[in-house]
Design a protein around this nucleic acid. Structure first.
Length: 116
DNA sequence: AGATTGACTGCAT
DNA sequence: CATGCAGCCAATC
């Protein structure tokens, strides 16, 4: 497990229940990491770690389709169970969007505090 | 070392 | 609103 993946996992683990974050949002908090890497990291995520991967969705507020085929319904099911609000098939960012960890948390864990 | 491949994004059409 | 396309960056041939 390299540090990039570990960093992404730790960040994703900070998303509180009932809220969601986008791939790009996670990526922008990391040093030199694109949105695709976040998805790539989640796709390669080992099963022996407990990460709320279902709270990460794409910028359009929808569940991203994965190569595996299934898993999207599972993701939506978990989100609904946490009380995430869906509006016309998309997550309502106004109500459930994750504002992000506070700056102190980011600093303590070595993430980028200010964008460039 | 170069090409391909993604759970992505933003802008243009 | 749907598609297309370029930019993106680490992992994998």
């Amino acid at each position: 497990m390299n540090s990039l993946y570990a960093g992404i996992y730790r960040l994703v683990a900070q998303i509180p229940p009932g809220q969601v974050a986008t791939y790009g949002q996670i990526a922008s908090m990391m040093q030199r990491c694109g949105a695709r890497q976040v998805g790539y990291a989640l796709a390669a995520m080992p099963d022996d770690v407990d990460i709320p991967w279902h709270r990460v969705i794409n910028a359009r507020g929808e569940i991203s389709a994965r190569s595996g085929g299934s898993g999207e319904s599972e993701q939506k099911r978990r989100l609904l169970a946490e009380g995430v609000v869906f509006n016309r098939g998309r997550v309502d960012f106004e109500a459930c969007g994750w504002p992000g960890p506070d700056w102190r948390w980011l600093e303590r864990h070595g993430y980028r505090v200010f964008p460039d």
